[in-house]
Amino acid sequence: MHDVSNIGPRVIIWFDEGPFKGLYITETVFWAIIVSVGVIIFTLVSARRLERDPKGAQGVAELIVEFTYNMVRNTMGKHCIGFAPFIGTLFLYLLFANALGLIGFRPVTSDMNMTFALSILVFFLIQVNSMRSRGVIGYFRHFCEPYPLMLPIKIIEDFTFPISLSFRLFGNILAGVIIMALVFSGLGFLSESVLHLPIPLLEAVFPLPLNAFFDIFEPILQAFVFSMLTMSFIAKAIATHEH
């Protein structure tokens, strides 16, 4: 992770022969699978024996679920409460995927493929829900509202949303990764060639405030922002005159 010369994700598993020849797995895919399996295991464990008085993992899970439902109800309104499981999954997954730098690995979302996949998912969710709530004719008509001259601007607006969403997440997390790499290599250089320490001792305590900002605060903020923008755009897409 702390290598400034190459900012792309490393290839960690590759096949030279056999049926999977030429296939390779980057650390992005590896850690994405690990994080999703971890979230699934947590949900299964916390919902295994449900009790009336929650304790342990069930209490944490209930806290998360309640927080998600409150957030969705406040942002999108009561009629969109069905989106809460999706938003909660997105939030939880992004939280852990962003915070991988805390244990010294490359965050999953510092790879543009990952963020683009997520934002394309959100894009199709928005378009399909817009089509379902407006009907096919109404869907195509709302591009021409308030007057047909707005058509290109509306289309551009719809297509720039996933691009800016994915670039926002990617840029924020990658900036954190680069700054952490620069700080770590600078501290390593200082302790090695200036103070002549046998081990890079300066790397131990000094980056802690930066770690707290880039690996705890920023992941929470970016996961919140991603799910917040997703929610508000879905709510905008299915807003009809009755609500």
Partner: peptide, 16 residues
């Protein structure tokens, strides 16, 4: 926070 995230878009594009 949502508004700040929208504002941040231009500087993120500059970073890219």
């Amino acid at each position: 926070f949502a508004g700040l995230a929208m504002t941040e878009t231009s500087v993120i594009f500059a970073l890219i």
